[in-house]
Computed example of a mutant assay.
Amino acid sequence: MNESIISVVVPVYNAEHQIRCLLDSLLLQTWSHFEVLLINDGSTDESGIICEEYADKDHRFKVIHKKNEGVSAARQTGIEAASGIYVIHADADDWMESEMLQDLYAKAVLTNADVVFCDYYVERNGNSVYRKQEPPSFSPEVVLRAMFQRLHGSCWNKLVRRSCYSQYGCHFPKGIDYCEDLLFWVQLLQHPKIKITYVNKAYYHYVMNETSITHNYTRKTYQVRCAFYNQLCNYLPSMGFEKELENARLSVFVEGYMHRALSNIEAWKLLWMYNKKAAFFNSKSIRWKVGYIALALGCFPIARKLLRF
């Protein structure tokens, strides 16, 4: 049997120094019925050549070269090209244990699940930390809320039935390259018929990249996070998810202040208007009202304490 049962989607951008580790870990999988879709997102280094090298030696590896449009567009390109029954994503600078695909698929078949969660490792400065990701329940709504708390909103430790993308109209929004995977889960987990299960083991090694957009806050980071927040508001029902939306709003505006990434006067005016509105109209708590005003005035120690940052 040679058909692809799992499609592994890998966005690739200037990853020549890291990508071999991931691709080698895929070659070492104990289960062979998968395809690897390498989406070369306009790399300017040797990444594309390395991808072609693996495709030449293993027919399961397929390379799609495209212009640079960001990781979200690359993920969507991979989904549209996938042929597997299930899909999982992987990042070019990470790697996975050899039993990952076999074990997740076995669990999916055993439980007829649409989504299979598993644990993962965080790799940072030579240290490996185990992260447990057991959902508090298998209810899609409960899992969705947990995505804003202790569950990681990634797609690389979750196997998903590919038909869910089309059946529920789920996609990765082009141009939003911050938490684009969380936006996918927000779309999917609003459907109560989604069946979820969990494997109590870590397989994926997530490498903490200190140069990524997640860890370096700039003016561009602020703009990307604003786009993420606006899209989140479009996807997430405002009724019943007020706390989640408020926390997302804080991650955009509070971090912009804390990192002092927003230096032009227009941005400061925008944030002052936002915090004033939040203080007097959007927040019922006196503590949060004062916190927003402190934030708007640049009183960061007070704002941190009151807003729990």
Rank of each mutant, 00 (worst) to 15 (best):
E3D: 07
I5K: 15
I5G: 07
V8F: 06
V10A: 04
E16Q: 14
I19P: 06
L23S: 09
L23I: 13
L28Q: 07
T30W: 08
W31Y: 15
S32N: 09
S32E: 06
D45H: 12
E46N: 08
S47I: 10
S47T: 10
I49G: 04
I50V: 14
E53N: 05
R60I: 09
I64T: 15
I64K: 14
G70H: 06
R75F: 14
R75N: 09
Q76R: 07
T77D: 08
I79P: 09
A81P: 03
A82I: 07
S83E: 12
G84N: 12
V87T: 15
V87F: 15
I88N: 02
M96V: 15
E97L: 03
M100H: 08
A106F: 02
A106L: 00
K107D: 11
V109W: 00
N112F: 00
E134S: 08
P135N: 08
P136Y: 08
S139I: 09
E141G: 08
E141H: 02
E141K: 06
R150Q: 11
N157K: 02
Y165A: 03
Y168F: 15
K174L: 01
G175I: 06
I176F: 06
I176R: 05
C179V: 03
C179Y: 10
E180I: 00
D181H: 05
D181Y: 01
L183A: 04
L188C: 14
Q190D: 14
H191A: 06
V199S: 00
N200Y: 05
K201E: 12
K201L: 02
H205Y: 13
Y206N: 08
E210D: 13
I213A: 12
R219E: 13
T221K: 10
T221D: 07
C226F: 15
Y229R: 06
Q231I: 02
S238M: 05
E244Q: 15
E244N: 08
L245H: 11
N247V: 05
N247T: 04
A248F: 03
V254F: 10
Y257K: 13
H259T: 10
N264T: 13
E266D: 09
A267D: 00
K269A: 11
M273E: 14
Y274M: 05
A278N: 07
A279F: 09
I286E: 11
K289I: 00
G291D: 07
Y292T: 01
I293Y: 06
L297M: 12
P301Q: 15
P301A: 13
L307N: 04
F309T: 04
